[in-house]
Amino acid sequence: MIMAKAKPMDEIINEIKGFRKVLIAGCNGCVTVCEAGGMKEVELLASALRMFFMREGQEMEIGETSLTRQCDPEYNRELQESIRNYDAVVSLACGAGVQFLAEMYDNVPILPGVDTCFIGVTEEPGVWTERCQACGQCLLASTGGICPIARCSKRMANGPCGGSANGKCEVNKEIACGWQLIYDRLKQLGQLDRFEQPVDIKNWSTSRDGGPRKIIKEVSRQ
């Protein structure tokens, strides 16, 4: 799932202070799960903003809504009527949702209300961590199900580097060494023979490096 976190209030206030009517639009997908942009966060942000502008003595109408998803035109169309009542929209969806909404409503400023961070998991309530960088060519079969691209700070294919200490990364003691994890798992799986085989240089063209990506599934096209 895509993980995001709320933008600082000051930043949002600064973006919307020139408007009179602003809609806060949440997304019931990923950002709801990571508690950054669902209906609950829409309500909290809207109340906080109303209080702020009231105290400032500035007239500001804040609307609230949340769409099933903002990465699907079907749901974004639901705003067709109501969006006309607003000068701007603060979208609490991930960067994809913000952009997709903006593509549909190109005469209304669509502003981001969250910072989109990574593809990850809910490690425990309130803790989300990265697992995937969407490189477009999954190599988890050879690394014991742990991704060296997402989990090694140097994305090494032949790690760990010389900075691995007590299972932690040299960059930060809070970060687990991805290669220690891979090694431990390969050992558990009886696949340590994979470790000594030098891994060839990767084709990054399926990753961000190859330019904006597209997937077409002919059978699903109408």
């Binding site: 140097k154 994305r155 090494m156 294919a157 032949n158 790690g159 580097c161 030098p198 891994v199 060839d200 240089i201 990767k202 990054w204």
Partner: peptide, 9 residues
């Protein structure tokens, strides 16, 4: 950072 390859590569 680049890290297109690592030291072994």
């Amino acid at each position: 950072n680049v890290f297109d390859m690592d030291s072994t590569q």
